[in-house]
Write a protein that binds this DNA or RNA. Structure first.
Lengths: 296, 296
DNA sequence: TAAAAATACTCCATAGGTATTTTAT
DNA sequence: ATAAAATACCTATGGAGTATTTTTA
């Protein structure tokens, strides 16, 4: 069976045209090289070099094989280089999932910070809902995810990063817009607009407005915050919106007004999560350091 | 220092996704494989697989390295072949890929001729679409392929063998069936049935019917010629069919009629192709001699 | 808790070193 | 005759096998 050692030795022999010098270049003795070359010739069934006094000359077959060996060795060297890059933090591509209500706010700054701190880092981003992110990360299709934590899934390890306050988005002309601060208990089920079932924002909003009986909500379940914003702007109701999503998608619409809640202000915690015992935990913790953090 | 053994083991592990099965495939014990993979991970400085109960899954790095390893192993296999089959033509097993629209017509005769001329030759055949054949040949999983040439891929060397004329397949009762010869410019986009996008027959048919705007085709894209034949037989449209595929799959259906095109009759060139610099070029040229040839 | 991978340890094959012989011109 | 490669022989490394323990969802 062919070995890389044999190809490395042939490569050196081809370069030096002399067993003794090639052996020296390889840091082995001449007999060691001779034996390996003879093994290679036996394995291939053909002489690779003409032995001449004064040195060696490649045969036609030997020349062909030496050039192929050089290509193989180059490919192997590339493999080794991939490995070396891995010693560094974020040395290999990291596939990161982010939920849609966080992504547009988080990513511009995060990607810049990653680029500054780890110039060689390569990060791929996928944006979808928490449930999908969890599945894909569990399957190994993603390396880590940014979402509202805790996920409540024992397979995952989490690092909380920062709070994202909930605001009340109301039509500019409504009675809600006249208050300086909002109160969850004053929200009526009939006017509350939420995302469709299974979406984490829906569950978070309901846990904040505990007084609301979910069965009394409008059956309407939007699939995107943008849809809800337009409904609110059109006076169809009100909604709870995370501050960072509001900054990106709502603040500029004059038909909408954002009202902060009175203390204690409701919020969700945003954090980084990954499969427990993932070999890249060091990468993930380094990445978590680059997330926006609460000033506490 | 990296060894070929480690790459061979990683390759098997990637293919089997399970230490035990991969070890069995390699003919070694599971601990032997475990140790080598661990050595490789140590040498590269990164985990290559996630160890899970039920098997293993390649990490991102592992996947990258496994694919490079496969390329290295293919190159090494070529080096070994230079030795083995040297001297005898077709002295070692040849893995040949053939596209489906050629295979049933070509293979019976070809395999007989190979057996007569080179009684010791062993040929394995794989039948699939051009794109897959190209990938597998580039990867070293196949030695050569028979398809419509030119492939337009600089990595391949080609020998054209024979022309395969295109015929028009029409429903027996249609107006087309009354003509003694067909004219590509008289084919309407609305009635032309083609295979799905990416299939070479589709592209060939479109290049023959240049007047047709592809966007006006029915969005329908069948996955097999058989499906299209049945649609034509049912009066749903017409199609272009290579003569050899027609001989095998259409000629016997009374609901179909085949009409030859007027001169210059459109055709595709069928040929043999292999990876440039393959050590078995002599074998391939010998094989090409056994393909049906145009009488010119 | 059960399947799967890692570890421990023993043995043998193989690579490499030193000393010496053979080869080719 | 002489440089150079091959061979002989010994040692050390490392790969593989068996038995067992550890790991993980």
């Amino acid at each position: 069976m062919l070995t890389l050692r044999q190809l490395r030795y042939l490569d050196a022999l081809a370069a030096n045209a002399h067993f003794g010098r090639a052996a020296a270049a390889l840091g082995v003795t001449q007999p060691a090289l001779s034996v390996q070359i003879r093994e290679l010739e036996k394995a291939l069934g053909a002489p690779l070099v003409h032995r001449l006094p004064g040195g060696v000359r490649l045969t036609a077959v030997g020349s062909e094989i030496a050039s192929r060996a050089a290509a193989v060795l180059a490919a192997v060297r590339e493999i080794e280089e991939i490995g070396h890059a891995r010693g560094r933090i974020l040395g290999s591509r990291l596939r990161l999932g982010v939920i849609p209500s966080i992504a547009p706010y988080l990513l511009p700054g995060l990607l810049v910070r990653i680029g500054e701190r780890y110039p060689d880092a390569a990060v791929t981003v996928r944006e979808t809902v928490t449930r999908t992110l969890i599945e894909e990360t569990a399957q190994g299709e993603l390396d880590a995810l940014v979402a509202s934590v805790p996920l409540g899934d024992a397979r995952f390890e989490e690092v909380p990063a920062f709070k994202d306050a909930f605001l009340l988005a109301v039509p500019a002309g409504s009675v809600h817009a006249t208050h300086s601060s909002a109160d969850p208990s004053q929200i009526a089920a009939e006017e509350l607009l939420l995302l469709e079932d299974g979406h984490c924002l829906r569950d978070q909003a309901l846990s904040i407005c505990r007084a609301i009986d979910p069965s009394r909500l409008r059956s309407f379940g939007a699939t995107s915050l943008t849809t809800i914003f337009h409904l609110v702007a059109a006076g169809q109701g009100i909604t709870l919106v995370p501050e960072m999503a509001a900054d990106v998608g709502v603040a500029s619409d004059p038909r909408l007004k954002l009202v902060r809640f009175a203390d204690p202000e409701p919020y969700r915690m945003v954090g980084l999560a990954w499969r427990r015992n993932s070999p890249r935990e060091r990468d993930f913790r380094a990445l978590a350091e680059l997330l926006p953090a609460d000033r506490q």
